[in-house]
């Protein structure tokens, strides 16, 4: 499962200090899954149950099964997210089936953004997003503790200024 992780590829000095996301993010996502499933299950159960016959209410089991699967997926996806601050670049690794690993040198950062929506705030979460001059750079870390997000933002800006390289 872990092929391609830097630890196994024999890169010198790759003993990285990986950090994961806050468990609150998993809770938030699971809550969303449960909320949507409940709505869908009621809709798919009630409508055929009332219109056609009580037996047809069994359709409600379809979204419930899907939700059970999504519940597991959310957990696996949450565990797969991790990031590491190295001396000169930031590493973000994520994804279970579609794995993606991003390296952004600090000197290339144009902008660091910290966002937090109403639900995220309620769960005490914040998202840090890094922008470089390349639009394709997809360096987002969701589900951070707001204090950690601010620390990361300040550290990234500081390191970015010290190593600034531009285009």
């Amino acid at each position: 499962m872990e092929t391609g992780s830097p630890k196994e590829s024999g890169i010198p000095g790759a003993e990285l200090e990986w950090r994961g996301l806050q468990p609150a993010l998993m809770r938030l996502r699971r809550l969303l899954v449960v909320g949507w499933t409940a709505t869908l299950a009621v809709a798919t159960g009630l409508l055929p149950g009332l219109l056609v016959g009580p037996a047809w209410a069994a359709f409600a089991l379809v979204p419930v099964t899907c939700a059970a699967w999504c519940w597991r997926l959310v957990g696996r996806n949450w565990r797969s997210w991790r990031y590491a601050e190295r001396a000169d670049d930031l590493l973000i690794s994520r994804g279970v089936l579609w794995r993606e690993e991003t390296v952004v040198p600090y000197g290339r950062m144009q902008l660091v953004e910290v966002t937090s929506g109403p639900l995220e705030r309620r769960f005490g979460l914040a998202t840090v997003q890094l922008h470089t001059a390349a639009a394709a750079t997809d360096a987002t870390i969701p589900g951070l503790d707001p204090a950690e997000a601010e620390r990361l933002r300040d550290r990234l800006t500081e390191l970015g200024e010290a190593r600034s390289a531009g285009l």
Binding site: W98, R99, E100, T102, V104, R108, A134, D138
Partner: peptide, 10 residues
């Protein structure tokens, strides 16, 4: 080079 990414599908 602005950033480097590695991606791998199932």
């Amino acid at each position: 080079v602005q950033s480097v990414r590695l991606s791998q599908g199932p």
